[in-house]
Simulated assay, not measured.
Amino acid sequence: MRQNIRTLLLLSLVFAHVFTGQAQFSLQGYSTGVTGGISESARYKTEISTNEAGVRPRGENYSFYLGLAAANLESAIVSVTATNSSDAIITEDTDAYLLRIRPSGNYDTLGRVNSNAGGEFDFASVFHGNYLVVVDSDPQKYVPTYYGNSFLWNEADILVLAKDTLTEITVNSKPRELTSNDGDGLVRGTIEEDFKDSEDGRIDARRRAAKKKCGLRKRRRGGRTDQDEDEYELIAYGETNSNGEFEYGFLPEGTYRFFVEYPGIPMNESSFVQFDVGEAGVSDNEFVLAAVVTEDGITVELILGITDEVFTNFNIYPNPTLGKISIDFSEIVVQDLTMEVIDMNGRTIVSRKVENNENKRLEIDLSSQPTGQYILKFYDNAKSKTALTFRVIKN
């Protein structure tokens, strides 16, 4: 017989990890929520939130590990069938994952089921709750796909688990490889992670993110100009290499949106996530992107070129801005350099030479300009080419 999790906790708690704080309190009247584990032998983590006054402030959370078997908790079976676009069950080696949605909105990956015989899976003894389900098969043929048949976590359907459930996912096919006949656009760059340590709040050093899923969507022909109404199709998909680098080439002319897949962490839509191949002011249709993932979101910056080849200790801030932008540096490496600011109509609104006697700072004032996006470009006059390009946002 299934038992209510709160009642069970009040009667028979077995702590595998002891709380080390000084607060003393009773579990009577405390709310609980299990946030991990799917197997019979796993240890399960629960968050216990105080609803009563005590040594600790009201509403503070405490975490314990509970040595309880899944059979004693309210649970269910999740059965997943993965099919291709022809509605046939996938026969390739395939993985399926469950991601539990935490109260904070983030996700815990609770388990993986592998099937080397095709796309049919069972997750046993899964706690009741809200989940994302994702299927990942042959990367040469398919794109990881969520319940609801989306390749993006924020567009996936949520599985509300309250009983044994059967689900079917139609796995998206990988886009065809582009060739030189398609176009000459190139998007490459890096993905870095910048997270706090979960135990002590310490900020870890920013590090490159290997094997992270990312890709490009292209606006369909005939799509509306209003971004909220646009329809985009997947045109390139892959993952970063061991150094956190990605590259997509032979892109045809059009409007693109770049995305990085971190379930529970949204893209910062005000950063450089959308761009046009062939856009005025950007040379050679080459875009170098730098994506940084934090707990708050994924921010993407456009970096056309390598800053150390133009400036040393380069920093641009604030971006977005309400008007004024500062650019700090220690030294200008390129001797004959011009700085330009170009609006999205291709009109140059700022153009000036940059000298080494600039007191190690450049100032740009966009206060009189309308809100929107601008291109900040540094041009190497000696080599007759763009050395650096950044996207600037005026709020």
Rank of each mutant, 00 (worst) to 15 (best):
N319A: 09
V126A: 01
D328Q: 08
R6S: 14
T94Y: 09
Q28F: 08
G281R: 05
E253K: 11
S270F: 02
D108S: 12
Q335K: 11
R100Y: 10
L73M: 08
I5N: 10
I342R: 00
N172M: 14
E92A: 15
K141M: 11
I364F: 03
G278Y: 05
E177I: 09
N315S: 14
E340F: 06
N241Q: 07
V292F: 04
I38F: 06
S150I: 01
S12Y: 10
F378V: 08
L68D: 04
I265V: 10
D343M: 00
I393R: 04
K212M: 15
A387P: 07
H128N: 11
Y379K: 06
S368T: 07
H17N: 15
Y374F: 09
I77G: 08
Q227D: 15
N357F: 04
D380Y: 05
D184V: 11
D138F: 06
F378P: 01
Y30L: 14
Q373H: 11
E301K: 05
I342L: 05
V260I: 12
D328A: 15
Y379S: 00
L186E: 13
N149E: 09
S41Y: 07
N4S: 15
K360Q: 10
L161R: 11
V282Q: 03
F15N: 09
N345E: 01
G105Y: 08
Y97E: 03
R102E: 13
P266Q: 12
F250R: 13
G281C: 05
D296H: 13
V333C: 02
E92R: 09
E229H: 06
Y131M: 01
I48D: 03
L13T: 07
G36L: 09
Q274E: 10
N4V: 02
H128R: 07
V34I: 11
G33P: 07
S85P: 03
L11I: 05
F258I: 04
D122E: 12
E340V: 02
E247S: 07
E301A: 12
N114C: 12
S367R: 13
K394L: 04
Q369E: 15
K213W: 10
P57M: 01
A280D: 08
D87T: 05
N84P: 02
E269W: 04
E247A: 05
F15E: 14
N381R: 13
E363N: 12
E331V: 09
V187S: 00
V135Q: 13
A53M: 11
V288T: 11
V18N: 14
E253R: 09
N356T: 13
K213F: 10
Q274D: 10
V14L: 13
